[in-house]
Every structure is written in C-alpha cells, then in structure tokens.
C-alpha cells in the first residue's frame, strides 16, 4: 500500500471520523487557541509581538500540509493561486480603504497591520481547507445512501437525492458553458473581434459586451440547468411509485 495514503484525509473511513478530523484541523482557523499558545512558546526566543505574528503563517503551513496529500500537488497549487489572489485583493484594498477613511477606522496603524496580516494568512489557509473539506465527501455515495433509506424516510431521501443531483448537474453545465465560451472568446474577458476601434470607443464596446455577456451567461445557465429537469423528475417519480408498490406488496 502506498504510504502516502495514510495522510490522505479523503480516504479516512467512516465518514464521521473524517468529518471530526476536518473540524479539529480547521479549529485554529476559527479560534485564537493555537496562535496564542504557539506565540507564548516562541516568545521565549523572540520578541512577543513578532512571535504572535509568525504564529499565523505557522498555522497556515500546518493546514497546507494537511491538505496537500489529499489534493495532490497540481490541484493544491491551483487552489493556492486562487487563495493568494483572494488574500492579496482583500488585504491591499483593505489597507487602501484604511488610509482613505482613517476617521471611520479608528484603529492604530500597528493593530491594523497585525489584523490584516492575520487575515491574509487566514484566507490562504481557509480557502484550501474548505475546498479539501468539500472534495473529501462523495456526493455519489450520499445520493446512493439516500435512495436506499427505508420508509418513512424514503420519500424525503429521494427528494434530497434529487436535490444533490441537480446541484451536480449545475456543476457540469457551468463547465460545458466555459468550454463553449473559450471557443468563442479565447481571452474569456475580452471579445474576439475588436475591429479598428479607437481606445474610448473600444472601452464603450467592451463594457457593453461585458454586460450582455453576463446576461447571456445567466440565461444560458438557467436554460441548460432546466433542460433535463423534466426527464430527471420523471425518473424520480417512477422510482417513488415503484417503491410505494413494493411497500404495498411487502405488507
């Protein structure tokens, strides 16, 4: 057996144990406990303020280590790039706002910096942690378990299973639309044909195009989401009726 499998959280069984491990590992993200504890230990070697500051990246590093084996390097790096983008945007715009409206944020510069630094590392850790969490529970097995429920929960189970399947379907619709969009507009956020427009005219055209694109996306995603619903509903109705017949014949 691959030794690394031991560290892959999504392979832990039963599922409730996996859930508890996730909560315990994620606890530092939502509490002060380990940060303060670590900073107390580190303060023996460093300045106490510096010790508190370096406790945040240490916690983030621990969370990354936890997520990495389960996600694999490529997916982990994908998630990290999104996390870095989100963390940087949040922190940079936050500090800009802080400087623009100092009368609203009556916070001293040092406290604000520490808060933003903590926020920065928090976003960097929360993002991969929450995605690993979601990725570690199989919707397929939940759906199968729900459809196997016995009366009187059977009908409710079928409704939950249908709801989950619709959620999954929306995921596939979005990826399909992205592929279509990429063929039509390879740069994704800029139209393919820009003509000979001058700068100002181009900006107007681009804003208009962007607005229409959002509308097109909304409608296309609704239509493609709704498209298989009648067939899906029909299947569940048949399943429900067959269940009822079986229950009746068992009685």
């Amino acid at each position: 057996m691959n030794r690394l499998n031991f560290f892959k959280i999504h392979l832990v069984k039963p599922f409730w144990l996996r859930f508890i491990i996730f909560i315990i590992v994620g606890l530092p993200l939502f509490s002060n406990f380990p940060a303060l504890f670590i900073s107390q230990i580190l303060s023996k070697f460093f300045n106490p303020e510096f010790a508190l500051i370096i406790s945040y990246p240490l916690i983030s590093f621990f969370i990354w280590l936890f997520c990495l084996p389960s996600l694999g390097l490529n997916k982990f790096l994908d998630y990290m790039s999104a996390a870095f983008l989100m963390a940087l945007t949040t922190v940079i715009t936050s500090s800009l706002l802080q400087n623009l409206f100092p009368f609203i944020f009556m916070e001293n510069a040092y406290a604000a910096s520490v808060r933003l630094l903590r926020l920065y590392f928090n976003v960097l850790a929360v993002f991969p942690w929450s995605l690993t969490f979601i990725n570690s529970f199989s919707p397929d097995s939940i759906i199968n378990a729900l459809t196997q429920l016995r009366t009187p929960f059977r009908e409710a189970g079928l409704h939950f299973a249908l709801a989950l399947r619709v959620f999954q379907h929306v995921g596939t619709v979005v990826s399909k639309l992205l592929l279509i969009w990429k063929e039509r507009y390879p740069s994704l956020l800029v139209m393919r044909h820009t003509g000979e427009n001058k700068k100002l005219k181009f900006i107007f055209a681009w804003v208009r195009w962007l607005a229409y694109s959002v509308i097109d996306w909304v409608y296309a995603s609704i239509i493609l989401t709704f498209e298989p619903i009648p067939a899906m509903v029909n299947e569940f109705e048949i399943l429900s009726e067959r269940n009822k017949k079986n229950d009746f014949s068992e009685k």
């Binding site: 619709v166 995921g171 989401t225």
Partner: peptide
C-alpha cells in the same frame, strides 16, 4: 428539482 436548481 426547481428549488435545488435555483439554489445551485
């Protein structure tokens, strides 16, 4: 199905 589609 409709409610879950809109929620999704």
């Amino acid at each position: 199905a409709l409610i879950s589609a809109l929620a999704a």
